[in-house]
Design a protein around this nucleic acid. Structure first.
Length: 561
RNA sequence: AGGGGUGUAGCCAAGCGGUAAGGCAACGGGUUUUGAUCCCGUCAUGCGUAGGUUCGAAUCCUGCCACCCCUGCCA
């Protein structure tokens, strides 16, 4: 037997394997540490899948920790939304939700320890002066004139900072490392700054807050994180991360590992830019279906499994590439193709009148929601009634005035077509309005073709989806195109706002089969021969059906001109 | 006195001295009551580049080149 080729282990999995087999760790703990200053996007989805995935794979746990060290930018709305997104994606965090702010007391004590050890000092340099003293890539920095304050003075000053006796920016606590270090993050970084802002967790208890660098590794240590996985831009901070662990009496020695963040073409994955789209009203909120946010993808009809499968297909490596959006689209189509119920909806209705039937002809067809790749019915999603009558609607695009080879599967006068799940009909003629638009097709139903081929052996070449005119239900359909029409809206000197697709949202009316109106919100259907559409999470109801385009079916490229 | 990271097909990527996995995309063909799905096939004499070591190099060595990140009291 040939065994399926296992996915090769990535470098972090190899490290964990070694750490476990060498006995360095008995079990592993990871963490996903978002800052609650915006909604999670598909890049975070990768980080979530990596961190929670590693924990699952090695039988460990993954904590959800809100990295809330900057009260000016963070809000409770985001901590709620982030939890929802993580849960929706299908992950469970270990224990209670964690907040870096849970550790503010301990962090404050560690800062005092550093001062007592003569390793930290209160610096009165203004932000501007500090920048000058820091030097630049070519030039080493200069020691702050406040670097040699006594331990007593530093202790006193830091306490005054805590008590709110100084204005924001008047001073900050810095750690004494090396102003000439080639790694800029080691040039006496600030570890505590004054921010007289109310914190969403700690309220007004503090007016000084630890920096990311001072908080992150120590928080990992407190939580017993064994493998602290983050993105590449933090690699330069690793020496600092290690410095704090070495110089502080921390309960454990976690280690940081970095991998390349996810970039996707035709989109942006930067909270700053996403926020600009929301605040500039380019989209209708963080969960607009065009947004690459997790909540936006959810509203678009992406399933948790499709996002997880996509993320699992991505490399955890140190390369910094841009994935083709087609790769993501593949995974949503793949999931929906296997699991989405099929139904019929006509987007651009064209009336078809069957002349050889009674005016009031009506019958009910029973059609399964799902089929396998062989075309056999699958029963797990059941079936529904599809009304059929002598007046139908098909899509305008499926009727052609003149036959041509390219339209061999379309409906033309003198040609037959199969009504999907129904009968074969033949077009006899059509009517036009004053502007030359085709307004109606007159056709004949071929008897005894339900579920079988015509007796005369003249099989139709094509199949069309359709709706019984008198049973059709009107629905709002929201068609979405890529938000950006530039493959790299983030790139170069471009302003991503100049790369917006003009009409990325088009709202139209469509006719849907009755069963679709009763769909539960967030159910994704394949509108046969069109694409996948989801009943809008918030706006859909039986009285006013609303469907969002998730993604179209793949199209035969040879048909495109 | 700069530091850190990365270069394998259109995109992502495995490979760790023994003769270039896999996925996406693309392109042929077959099946089909969805022009979808499904099935079959094609797609790097080549691994940023120039040298060197070796019986043998994408893998080791040296030099060059390109791209990304770092000079917040953001994360």
């Amino acid at each position: 037997m040939t065994e399926a080729t296992a996915k090769p282990a990535n470098f972090i999995e190899k490290i964990i394997d070694e750490d476990l087999s060498s006995g360095k760790h008995q079990s592993i703990t990871t963490r996903f540490p978002p800052e609650p200053n915006g909604y999670l996007h598909v890049g975070h989805a990768k980080a979530i899948c990596v961190n929670f995935g590693l924990a699952q794979q090695f039988g460990g746990q993954c904590n959800l920790r809100f990295d809330d060290t900057n009260p000016e930018k963070e809000e409770d709305e985001y901590v709620q939304a982030i939890q929802d997104d993580v849960k929706w994606l299908g992950f469970e965090w270990g224990g209670d939700i964690k907040y870096t702010s849970d550790y503010f007391d301990q962090l404050h004590q560690w800062a005092i320890d550093l001062i007592k050890a003569g390793k930290a000092y209160v610096c009165d340099l203004s932000a501007e002066q500090a920048k000058e003293y820091r030097g630049n890539f070519e030039k080493p920095g200069t020691n702050s004139p406040f670097r040699d304050r006594s331990v007593e003075e530093n202790l006193e000053l830091f306490e005054k900072m805590r008590l709110g006796e100084f204005d924001e920016g008047a001073c900050g606590l810095r750690v004494k490392i090396d102003m000439a270090a080639p790694n800029m993050s080691l040039r006496d970084p600030y570890i505590y700054r004054i921010k007289k802002a109310t914190h969403h967790q700690t309220g007004d208890k503090w007016c000084i807050y630890p920096s990311y660098d001072f908080a992150h590794g120590q928080s990992d240590s407190i939580e017993g994180i064994t493998h602290s996985v983050c993105t590449l831009e933090f690699a330069d901070h690793r020496p600092l991360y290690d410095w704090f662990i070495e110089n502080l009496d921390t309960p454990a020695e976690p280690h940081q590992y970095e991998f390349g963040r996810l970039n996707i073409n035709y989109t942006v994955t930067s909270k700053r830019k996403l926020r600009a789209l929301v605040e500039g009203k380019v989209v209708n909120g963080w969960d607009d279906p065009r947004m690459p946010t997790i909540s936006g993808m959810r509203r678009r009809g992406y399933t948790p499994a499709s996002i997880r499968n996509f993320c699992d297909s991505l490399a955890v490596a140190k390369t910094d590439g841009t994935v083709d959006v087609a790769q993501m689209e593949y995974f949503i189509r793949d999931d929906l193709n296997q699991n989405a119920p099929r139904a019929m909806a006509v987007l651009n209705p064209l009336k078809v009148v069957l002349s050889n039937m009674q005016d009031d002809h009506e019958e009910t067809l029973t059609v399964p929601y799902l089929f396998d790749s062989e075309g056999e019915a699958r029963t797990e999603l059941g079936e529904r009634d599809v009304p059929f009558s002598n007046e139908l609607y098909i899509d305008h695009a499926d009727f052609k005035e003149e036959y041509s080879k390219k339209f061999k599967k379309k409906f033309c006068v003198g040609k037959r077509i199969r009504l999907r799940h129904g009968y074969v009909i033949e077009a006899d003629g059509f009517e036009k309005d004053a502007d030359g638009n085709i307004t109606q097709v007159n056709a004949t139903l071929i008897e005894n073709t339900l579920g079988c081929d015509p007796a005369d052996d003249i099989k139709p070449k094509g199949v069309v989806h359709w709706i019984s005119a008198k049973h059709a239900v009107e629905a709002e359909v929201r068609s979405y195109a890529r938000l950006f029409n530039d493959a790299n809206p983030d790139g170069g000197d471009k302003d991503f706002m100049d790369c917006l697709t003009p009409d990325s949202l088009v709202v139209t009316k469509a006719l849907i089969e009755p069963a679709l109106a009763n769909a539960a919100a967030e159910t994704v259907f394949q509108f046969e021969r069109e694409g996948y559409y989801v009943a809008d999470r918030f706006d859909h109801s039986a009285d006013k059906p609303v469907f969002n385009l998730t993604i179209g079916l793949r199209e035969d490229r040879s048909l495109a001109n």
